[in-house]
Design a protein around this nucleic acid. Structure first.
Lengths: 206, 206
DNA sequence: TCATGGTTTAACCAAATGGTTAACAAAGGT
DNA sequence: ACCTTTGTTAACCATTTGGTTAAACCATGA
């Protein structure tokens, strides 16, 4: 009975992640979280003062992990195009590992932008390691062709993230056209994204 | 006082759209909707039996409009690539007109997939006018290069829809890199999407 | 052993919320 | 004028839900 002890808090957080990701802030019930964690509801309030704080923890954690994943961490001596390819790989694999993450963030961000801005300001974002900075640098020094870095970033992120966000919609589209749908074949997706990166960032394509 | 009469129902629906799109099914309060419509809460139940039915109306309507927009309606004598370009134009302009639409659908679909499948089955989807069918046809008869139509469709939809879905995230990314962010410049986006379509669907690119 | 302090629970509470009721108002047909 | 139907409201109700409380539990050190 007392085996849990210190990990009770972790158990609760795990359960809260699960429920909040599925139901969202408003849809989630404290009782559901308690059930999921296998504990009494009052214990939630013992570890986390109230629903808002518990949610903050989950939301903030997810945001942080999400934005961490957007740093360019690859070897600085590599050509920019290689680093962007690596970036897209990391992004897709990250999303494949946490398929609900994007949906959760988008849901909650859209329904509480104030909290989002508050939380995101608390996360240190290093300009030095951002994709936009890298692109701008490459364009300035001629390593990349001249293109709009914001549009490119949007295209890239879109192609990486939206398949996870809109998976149920894509399933239905495929079904209704009688096309087979392989849920987990992210390699094909990545190949196409790599093609796109080469297309946009290779100078030979001009 | 009695001026409204027949349009009360429409007023309620309009208010419900507004509130549900902003807050989602769980976050929306019947009282909020009544306030937004400027009427008594009981009147909601007079026109729509309960919250679920009112939501169904909004959700179903949104779904229908969304999927209607996915029909290929352009002139059949045009080259396929032209028709796909037109398709992307329509899609982006549609989303630009209803920027919350995608987020709303994704939110609610992800938190109630059963309802989604139920509703979507009630919408007649004509294989004949689907993008996938068109692509398959073009590939079969050699008008298009050989490519995976599902991946292409995912890429295309992603680039069109995700900028609206993740607008707040993109804003933050741009801000934190000190890049100016023009919210409404969809023409740049469309240009890039058109480039992509040409890149993928032109045989000359092989 | 037993006192102590952190941990856990059952029972409870107040507020919020979806939904109902009964009465009233307006309009239209007779 | 009067009855019926439709539209509208204030007040009310039952349930759900986030949150609290007081008591119990249990490991541990004096």
């Amino acid at each position: 009975m007392k085996l849990k002890d210190q990990n009770t808090e972790a158990t609760i957080l795990e359960a809260a992640k699960h429920i909040f990701m599925e139901k969202g802030l408003y849809g989630a019930r404290m009782q559901d979280i308690a059930n999921q964690a296998g504990i009494n509801k009052a214990l939630l309030h013992y570890y986390f003062r109230n629903k808002e704080r518990l949610f903050d923890e989950v939301f903030g954690g997810a945001l942080e992990r999400y934005f961490q994943n957007m740093d360019i961490i690859s070897d600085e001596t590599l050509p920019i195009i290689e680093r962007v390819l690596t970036y897209s790989n990391r992004f897709v694999h990250f999303l494949a590992e946490y398929p609900q993450m994007s949906i959760f963030l988008i849901k909650e961000i859209s329904s509480n932008q104030a909290l989002f801005h508050l939380k995101v300001n608390g996360i240190k974002k290093d300009k030095k390691y951002s994709l936009l900075t890298l692109l701008n640098e490459g364009i300035r020094n001629g390593e990349l062709p001249s293109l709009d870095p914001v549009v490119f970033l949007m295209n890239l992120h879109s192609m990486c993230a939206y398949p996870f966000v809109a998976a149920p919609i894509f399933q239905v589209i495929c079904q209704s056209s009688g096309v087979q749908w392989a849920d987990s074949n992210h390699e094909k997706l990545l190949n196409s994204i790599h093609d796109f990166i080469h297309f946009k960032l290779s100078k030979s394509n001009l």
